[in-house]
Design a protein around this nucleic acid. Structure first.
Lengths: 327, 327
DNA sequence: AGTGTTGCTGCAAACGTTCCCACAATGTTT
DNA sequence: AAACATTGTGGGAACGTTTGCAGCAACACT
């Protein structure tokens, strides 16, 4: 069916080795020969068979992405830059959803191991032991999560929270609620610590509102407890939760930001599209992904890149959902 | 490094052929032998090498997805069900973004052709000629777009528009604006036709507002022309555009739905999260994807599934952004 | 004239599977 | 008792590449 390297070889009047070299190590073949080979390949529509070459080189040309939930914009946000960077490096992107199941993840990683040269792992819930247990030979870069001995890309949520607290305190808020995300989320722990530290340095107090799923509905469920807490501002685990709060506040007739300020986290694309544009902590998704891919490619290439975590800054984006504390 | 079929073979005291058969055609090998092979494989952590088997069988175990824009929720919406269905059939999902570039798409499809067993193509802008020119041997299912001779999954936008018009007319609207999407979008053409037909059957009139990019900003840009048109209701090309309109209306102090009703299209997840929950035409994404994958798998298996397009119903979801015409 | 050196090319052996064919051993028909 | 199926197994040739090695010009240095 498709043209093979031998078809090209005979069309160009050379051996298969030469054709192979013309593509993989062009400087090893004479200029004139190289031209003939290229022409013949072009004419026959030859594309090298990755499976065959992979069999020899041990490379697949794929990089994998494992995320807990493809329906969560926080994870789809990175898809575009990731795909584009991967393509730039001539890799395909293989996608996997672990369905928020920490038990499933190691299985998926192992299954994927044979089909990718490396992978980017977003795994907020997996335990440290599971993480350490992953196949050592497989290049892995984790995002938003530190793993000893592996390169990883982190985001400075603590500083983001510091900025949020300063922002709110400057607006006169003294009683601030925090709607926590799922129990056991690492990113959540980081945010919380940063938040507590920042609150400690201020003269405001923090009210923590239970654990809620990191979705829109989670925010809805948290709204009434927030109202009951007497806080004048609320910081949500992430933007979806913030949006859920916002929607429920509107339904309850509570005006944002006049009566209550709301802050999200992550700055996923839709926050800017909400009815009340959301004040939120912006995560540099594109930069994070670029870093992750670069680290991964370096690891694949064998440059055991400093497994010192890359830490990226966050910054507060003040939009319409925060304002001066009421009276 | 990793255990090969021969390692398993010698560990189990059989030949490589037998090991292979024990996995790919278990009923061809004796029960007792099969057990020994399975045990040995388990012990050695053997996983068959897909590249090697693919080289023989010509199958990769991957299915590809090509979409024009991974940052558009309309396309990421299908990711979750698609990935899950693919995994169920023991396929991996390979993702590609064509960057809204109809020229790039054929190139990407060809590049992907070698690495997937088939692909799902969302390509609203590609020309019919380009589409017909794709490699005939590659199983392809198109979504939201009809291609002669190929299986495809369509969505009955015309009927959705009919429902929208009836809804609006029933609310007393007689002058309805339509914000068109990008020139050359097939889905757009379908919506428009359905819309015009439905309007024709009613006593309302339609005002078409230029072509705008299918994003939030496109909606923002269309807002003033809509206001100037004197329409009491506006139907947007898609939900993002509707959200953009909504935001700009809020900024202009126009109350929705009291002064102006807004209707989106597609019912992507975020519409329900908007400040004013959006009335929209709901597309059965999960069903559509299930159908597409099933068609694709059938085509891959060689059951040249009736290339009669599958057409799925849409339905209007009336939320808060539509109401009685003013005055 | 001999000895390297350099630049280009071909041969053939891998890589890890699958699958056709052959070949026993056993059971079934005539 | 001969002929033929049936069942389970192994041998070995593919599949389309890459790559170590060897060969062979051509050319430069002693």
């Amino acid at each position: 069916m498709a043209a093979t390297i031998r078809d090209v070889a005979s069309a160009a009047g050379v051996s298969a080795s030469t054709v192979s070299r013309a593509f993989t190590a062009p400087d090893l073949v004479g200029e004139e020969t190289r031209g003939r080979v290229r022409d013949a390949a072009q004419r026959l529509g030859y594309l090298p068979n990755r499976q065959a070459s992979g069999l020899i080189t041990g490379r697949t040309g794929n990089i994998g992405l494992v995320v807990p939930d493809l329906a969560n914009p926080f994870y789809t946000e990175i898809l575009k830059p990731l795909q584009s960077r991967a393509r730039g490096a001539d890799y395909e992107l293989v996608l996997t959803d672990s369905e928020e199941d920490p038990e499933l993840e190691p299985v998926l990683v192992r299954r994927l191991a044979g089909q990718v040269d490396g992978l980017i792992l977003c795994s907020p819930r997996m335990s440290d032991e599971q993480l350490a247990d992953l196949p050592a030979g497989l290049p892995i870069v984790t995002m938003y999560r530190e793993v000893p001995g592996r390169p990883c890309v982190l985001v400075d949520y603590a500083d983001g929270m510091e900025q949020v607290v300063r922002h709110l305190v400057a607006l006169g808020h003294r009683r601030i609620a925090y709607v926590a995300g799922p129990r056991g989320s690492r990113a959540g722990a980081l945010r919380r610590e940063g938040l507590q530290a920042a609150i400690g340095r201020s003269d405001a107090e923090l009210v923590e509102i239970g654990h809620h799923p990191p979705h829109f509905d989670g925010g809805g469920a948290a709204a009434d407890p927030v109202l009951a807490s007497g806080a004048t501002a609320v910081i949500a685990f992430n933007d979806l939760v913030a949006l859920g709060l916002l929607a429920m506040f509107t339904q309850r007739g509570v005006r944002v930001p006049a009566e209550l300020s709301v802050v999200g986290c992550d700055d996923v694309a839709i926050t800017a599209m909400a009815g009340v544009p959301l004040t939120t902590v912006s995560v540099p998704f594109a930069r994070a992904v670029r870093n992750a891919v670069d680290l991964l490619l370096a690891t694949i290439a064998g440059n055991d890149a400093a497994p010192r975590p890359t830490r990226l800054p966050t910054h507060l984006v003040a939009r319409g959902s925060t304002g001066p504390a009421p009276r």
